[in-house]
């Protein structure tokens, strides 16, 4: 049998297009995990994903309490959709999620970005989405290196052992 030879992953280029707490955290955990392993990591935030790097919104990301089949009551029973629709429920659920993550040492979004960039990870914002939401560079986290096109992002995503990941 031929010996199996894997090419090691050396670089991840991650695209985050959604603003829900869990989607943003997926991108951040992937990026942070990469730099922790000594790999290169770049994240491209686009469309609603921009919330994660917009100063005004990044500390208040929500997880959906309606239409989210993974959502359960404490104790494991299904979370009633009508309950999830009540005012304040989604904010409460999201606050609880953030607290639970902090308990296992997963930091808030802004601190997570500090960690990723401290390890050499790079943060970019999508030009198309920035234009669409009428944002300016100063509206975005100071960790954002630049506002670039998807073409620019692809141009820096190449090389042996590099992977593009969409969350």
């Amino acid at each position: 049998m031929a010996e199996k030879k894997d090419t090691q992953v050396k670089k991840v280029a991650i695209i985050c297009a959604k603003a829900s707490l869990e989607d943003v955290y997926a991108s951040l955990v992937l990026a942070n995990g990469a730099v922790m392993e000594g790999m290169e990591a770049k994240i491209f935030f686009t469309f609603f994903g921009l919330d994660a790097i917009t100063k005004k919104h990044m500390k208040k990301l929500h997880t959906a309490s309606v239409g989210n089949p993974g959502m359960r009551m404490p104790g494991g029973l299904p979370f009633p959709t009508l309950l999830g629709a009540l005012p304040g429920v989604e904010a409460g659920v999201s606050a609880m999620m953030r607290k639970q993550m902090d308990d296992i040492d997963v930091p808030p979004v802004d601190e997570f970005l500090d960690m990723i960039t401290a390890g050499g990870g790079e943060i970019y914002a999508c030009k198309l989405a920035v234009d669409m939401f009428k944002l300016k560079k100063e509206d975005l986290s100071d960790h954002v290196i630049d506002i670039i096109t998807i073409g620019d992002f692809y141009a820096m995503a190449g090389g042996e052992g590099s992977q593009i990941i969409f969350t």
């Binding site: 922790m36 392993e37 000594g38 401290a118």
Partner: peptide
Amino acid sequence: TIRKVGKSGIVDIKGFYELFPGGPLK
């Protein structure tokens, strides 16, 4: 976790990466 080391007061996270390049915690 890297976060705990960063809060140790000994070194910040950036400094931790600089001391042990290429995967500081491991």
